[in-house]
């Protein structure tokens, strides 16, 4: 039994190493000196352009702030984990997915809303789709069918809203929770009867011949795009967040006039590069896009409306007080 005595120091060393590693990891997130931690902006859009040209860095430097470009995230859930751990402190999204986060943790606030595009000439950005050969012609016929939606997100909100509008009891339609990329496969192979396709998935599925039952702009859709930031950043450095919003707004305005330079920003080739039809759709979207604007107390109505649909059908456990999740810049400055 000599070996066990030799084991003890080794085991002690192991425990010490593991403890040291974890405490080093924990202290990483604590540093906070006006640093905007953003997700990777990808290959298109105002932020990708800002990253390439360094505009955001220049403007933030004037208010003594910096920007840290992070990586990309496969899903909103993964992004949320990063926000919770402080690895990302400014994020973009829609009201619906952020509500799920706000229901559990109150460490972020919405500081900007983007009004919905109302121009009928603007390209459609989402729709409840059925396969080309589907017998379903109307949303009322969806009773007893399976519809793919992203859980607690825009897809689920729009489906609930559409069913309510059409007078179809919500529990008669089976909601199948799938992320957009999974839903695309399930829909293409007929594993689900319908799908509320959003963002990039929508033009893809239309190009493959899917038929649209209803678009979000035919509904009283209140689930608009937002920007949110972690509370400590908004409380301590509102001017940095404000500058970020100003830059995004100006670049969105610029992209309306000359959308070409906001597409394929870093790469002309590869999985993120767009060409042909796909590129044209994105250029059209940019031409009609509304720039984000600072949040006001009146925007609480959007939050309340979306939350009420979610709480009514049990997606969210409790109603959310809009005043506790909206950050107003002017009020903060005064």
């Amino acid at each position: 039994m000599r070996i066990p005595h030799r084991l003890l120091p080794v085991l002690t060393a192991l425990v010490v190493t593991v403890t040291a590693c974890s405490s080093a990891g924990a202290s990483q997130g604590a540093a906070d000196a006006a640093v905007l931690k953003l997700q990777d902006p990808g290959n298109a859009g105002p932020l990708a352009y800002a990253k390439k040209t360094g505009i955001l860095e220049q403007r933030l430097a004037k208010v003594g702030a910096k920007v840290e470009w992070g990586g990309s995230y496969a899903s909103f859930t993964a992004t949320i984990d990063a926000v919770r751990s402080g690895s990302v402190n400014v994020l973009q999204g829609a009201i619906s997915p952020v509500l799920g986060y706000l229901a559990n943790s109150k460490d972020i606030k919405i500081f900007s809303f983007t009004d919905r595009v109302t121009d009928p000439a603007a390209p459609k950005t989402d729709g409840l789709v059925v396969p080309a050969g589907s017998p379903v012609k109307d949303i009322k016929e969806l009773a007893g069918k399976q519809v793919a939606v992203n859980k607690g997100g825009r897809g689920e909100y729009l489906l609930l809203l559409a069913l309510e509008q059409a007078g179809v009891p919500v529990d008669q339609v089976k909601r199948v929770y799938l992320n957009p990329d999974q839903a695309a496969s399930a829909f293409a192979t007929g594993k689900v009867d319908a799908w509320w396709a959003i963002v990039r998935a929508y033009p893809e599925v239309i190009a493959k011949g899917a038929r649209v039952l209803v678009h979000s702009n035919a509904l009283p859709d209140q689930d608009i795009s937002i920007y949110a930031a972690r509370n400590e950043l908004l409380d301590r450095h509102p001017e940095a967040v404000r500058t970020y919003l100003d830059v995004v707004r100006e670049l969105t305005e610029e992209a309306k006039k000359s959308p070409e330079k906001f597409q394929n920003v870093f790469l002309q080739q590869g999985p993120t590069a767009l060409s042909g039809e796909r590129l044209q759709i994105e250029l059209d979207k940019s031409r009609y896009a509304n720039p984000p604007r600072p949040a006001t107390a009146a925007d609480g109505a959007f939050v309340t409306d979306v939350a009420s649909i979610f709480t009514k059908y049990g997606v969210l456990p409790a109603a959310i007080d809009p005043a506790s999740v909206i950050h107003e810049f002017r009020k903060a400055a005064a």
Partner: peptide, 24 residues
């Protein structure tokens, strides 16, 4: 590499899924 990455072969899988590129 689904989380917070900007390069890597796992990241490539994520990109292929996000951009619906079946070739990738």
């Amino acid at each position: 590499e689904q989380i917070g990455a900007t390069e890597g072969i796992g990241y490539l899988v994520t990109l292929a899924q996000q951009y619906y590129r079946s070739d990738y």
